[in-house]
Design a protein around this nucleic acid. Sequence first.
DNA 1: CTGAGTGCAAACCGTTTGCAGGCTC
DNA 2: GAGCCTGCAAACGGTTTGCACTCAG
Lengths: 143, 143
Amino acid sequence: MKARSERPDSVLRARLAGTGHRLTKQRLRIVEAFANQRRYVSARQLHARLRAQTNNIGLATVYRTLETLRELGLVTTSQHDGETLYLFCAPAHHHHAVCTHCGRVDDVPCRAVARFERMLSTGLRFRLMQHQMEFYGLCARCA
Amino acid sequence: MKARSERPDSVLRARLAGTGHRLTKQRLRIVEAFANQRRYVSARQLHARLRAQTNNIGLATVYRTLETLRELGLVTTSQHDGETLYLFCAPAHHHHAVCTHCGRVDDVPCRAVARFERMLSTGLRFRLMQHQMEFYGLCARCA
DNA sequence: CTGAGTGCAAACCGTTTGCAGGCTC
DNA sequence: GAGCCTGCAAACGGTTTGCACTCAG
């Protein structure tokens, strides 16, 4: 929620180096371009934004970088209209409240998941291994 | 949960006629092919299954029919690996427990959603309009 | 008999991949 | 320097669309 906005490049460098990856100008620019916005973006949107800046970045590089970041746990994806949307977010937390008006994405505290889990295992006799939830509505600002 | 397995064609005919659609052999065959299985299938899988039967059905027809059924509220979709998966299911219930072993899909009773909603509106000050959840694990049979 | 529905093939579009050259480590 | 990374363009794969024909109402 806060640690990420400090020093994109040092954080990123450490994370990449630890996994045998390199810190390139392109990767840095891509991360800067969407690290601090709490919203889902498509690869094409990101590419368009970067293209507007300075010299060129290939669309394929955007895709490859996003996939790398996803492997590193820095990015979550979501599908929408046959398009993959990417969100720079804290690892291992997959409940998001998406504002349908401004697009802002907030993390959802999910204590209630444990309750769900109990209900499933007793009621349905279903052993929950993984869940995926997405919430849409209006954030505090837009309500 | 049960009404659908009775008479696919009469139910379907009524639903289609009421919305200005026609009951064709193809639509009937498509519905029969997956109405009673509680699992997500892709258009291609469905098409392959139908092709194995008797005379041909075009893949495009499968897509168009699935889209029509979705508009009628008889089918829910989910994305997986860039593919759209379709589930014949009760309208207006969007919480499913998917068995990762056998693929069976059960409805999830979701009383707890109200609790979530309350938490979101007070804690995050987020006005929940829509939510989408999917649960993966092992069903009673496979556990 | 009219037009919604169909089969086929081509078009579409988001994503991936092959390859020659570049730049990080 | 070695080889990971990049840009470009072509390939890929799921889905949609145009068109002439068919058949349900």
